[in-house]
Design a binder for these strands. Structure first.
Length: 486
DNA sequence: TTTTGAGTTGTTCGA
DNA sequence: GTCGAACAACTCAAA
């Protein structure tokens, strides 16, 4: 079949902005179809979960990079801003290109599932071949069931079940088999989509991240040869470079979890036991989060355990704002929140500490924290964000006991023992000695003077007492228990 | 069918 | 200073 007669196939890209391990693309090429890549910008169709500011910044660069890569391969990439619906735009594109097939990787957000189902039906009615593929996860998290035929609600059984499945296989692309399409319809200019912020606040992000495929590969290689073997020891240390930091590339699909799996596995094609305790296990947590989101689509806003709808939160704008700005008076919390604002990313351990503090010590609804993370994280992902916040609040799919209240001072001393992380993000107290850095309110006037500082001047005193916050949280959870058992 | 053991990430208290 | 127990309740899967 020559290029002139090869049937055209649209590859609808979404959270799979890569040209490797790509099942739809591989399928099109195997069929001898001429692929045209399509990215539709339709934030309105994401419901309440349109990408936040940090995500849009990343998306812009991911698309710019993808556009360069596709040009290098002689593959057209069409960017279209959706005016009415994605369904309408896809139908138009099928008309413009004469495409006989439309292929995509499945998404798992409730709004996306609903939309994609409609689109699949409508395109089929028009006589177009439509096929969707698993590939955002390691496997197909939507169809996993326990022996009772129900979705899993506990990680370990889910994970053990999944380890019985075959090792995820890559879908490599054989570029020599590429049939270039003879037509090249108009693409819009990425710059016209306004994904970059009007007021540039992304300077630190530009320095810290390389939001491209090359950046993903470089980070993966660096991680695999660097901290990965010590993951268990280093992963909880925000003052070290111990986590993979691959989450944003994974969210946008610039690298696939299968590629990460293979790069970090021992190459024997087995679910190696040594990896089970390490970073690979985190990929299965990601998988579990997708599984939960599919089967409990209300969970981005509603607690999985329904009784938590009656939790006695104490909404307080001032407390929420203090938390968001990193001015709670607890250094490890504030350092995390400032890292988040600056880099669009926070170390996993600190996410747990900061989230626990908001939900427990401050008694603010976990949904408020989830919204803030959604808007500020470059790796904002509905499945992961939902699982994380519900886990923290104790209302989720996991038996996280309500009495597990993180103590920000103990956590700080344990995981940032030298105070290096806190000093990096809270320069205003960096001069305090290490034994005071995680509880600066205990510093004496002499300590402050010795550090050339003044108490309360540039860094706030705690907005809630440690014991007071803990006791309040425990009694709120107790109240809920009484409420639901009486 | 029923029972049983186990389950990502912690803290405090008292011996 | 160290160490074990207590802090709930429920889901899941294997026996």
């Amino acid at each position: 079949m020559d290029a002139a007669t090869a049937p055209v196939c649209l590859i609808w890209l979404r959270q799979d902005l890569r040209l490797s391990d790509h099942a739809p693309l591989a399928h099109a090429m195997k069929e001898g179809w001429a692929p045209i890549l399509v990215y539709l910008h339709a934030p309105e169709e994401e419901g309440a979960w349109a990408p936040g500011g940090a995500s849009q910044w990343w998306l812009h660069h991911a698309l710019a990079d993808l556009s360069r890569q596709s040009r290098d391969h002689g593959l057209p990439l069409l960017l279209r801003r959706v005016r009415s619906t994605s369904q309408q735009t896809l139908t138009e594109l099928v008309g413009e290109t004469g495409a006989q097939a439309v292929l995509w990787h499945r998404r798992y957000e409730p709004a996306a599932i609903a939309r994609d189902t409609l689109i699949k039906d409508s395109l089929r009615i028009q006589g177009v071949t439509v096929r969707s593929f698993a590939g955002f996860g390691l496997g197909e998290p939507a169809t996993v069931r326990n022996l009772a035929g129900k979705p899993f609600q506990v990680f370990t059984p889910f994970w053990k079940n999944q380890l019985k499945s075959p090792v995820p296989q890559l879908s490599p692309i054989d570029w020599s088999a590429l049939q270039a399409p003879s037509i090249s319809p108009r693409s819009e200019a990425l710059e016209d989509w306004g994904l970059l912020p009007q007021q540039p606040w992304t300077g630190a992000m530009e320095k810290f991240w390389e939001p491209t495929r090359a950046g993903a590969e470089a980070r993966l290689k660096q991680f695999a040869t660097g901290p990965a073997p010590d993951y268990k020891a280093l992963r909880d240390r925000p003052d070290e470079d111990g986590t993979s930091r691959l989450s944003p590339w994974l969210h946008f699909g610039q690298i696939s979890p299968r590629e990460v799996w293979h790069a970090l596995s021992d190459g024997n094609g087995q679910h190696a036991a040594s990896l089970a305790e390490g970073v690979i296990r985190q990929l299965w947590w990601r998988e579990f989060a997708l599984h939960l989101l599919v089967h409990f689509p209300g969970t981005p806003v509603e607690p999985l355990r329904p009784e938590f709808a009656h939790f006695p939160w104490r909404r307080d704008e001032a407390l929420l704002t203090a938390w968001q700005r990193g001015r709670t008076g607890y250094p490890i919390v504030d350092a995390g929140m400032r890292q988040l604002w600056s880099l669009g990313w926070m170390h996993n351990r600190v996410r747990m500490i900061a989230a626990s503090f908001l939900v427990k010590h401050l008694l603010q609804p976990w949904q408020e924290g989830a919204l803030w993370f959604w808007d500020t994280l470059v790796d904002a992902d509905l499945a992961n964000n939902t699982l994380g916040w519900q886990w923290t609040a104790g209302c989720g799919a996991d038996a996280a006991p309500y009495f597990r209240v993180f103590n920000p001072v103990l956590q700080g001393k344990k995981f940032d023992p030298l105070g290096a992380y806190v000093r990096q993000w809270l320069p205003e107290i960096a001069a305090l000695p290490t034994d005071l850095i995680h509880e600066p309110w205990t510093a004496t006037d002499l300590d402050w003077r010795a550090a050339g500082l003044q108490r309360g001047q540039s860094y706030p005193d705690p907005i809630v007492g440690l014991a007071e916050g803990r006791d309040r949280a425990l009694s709120a959870y107790q109240k809920l228990k009484n409420l639901t058992t009486s």
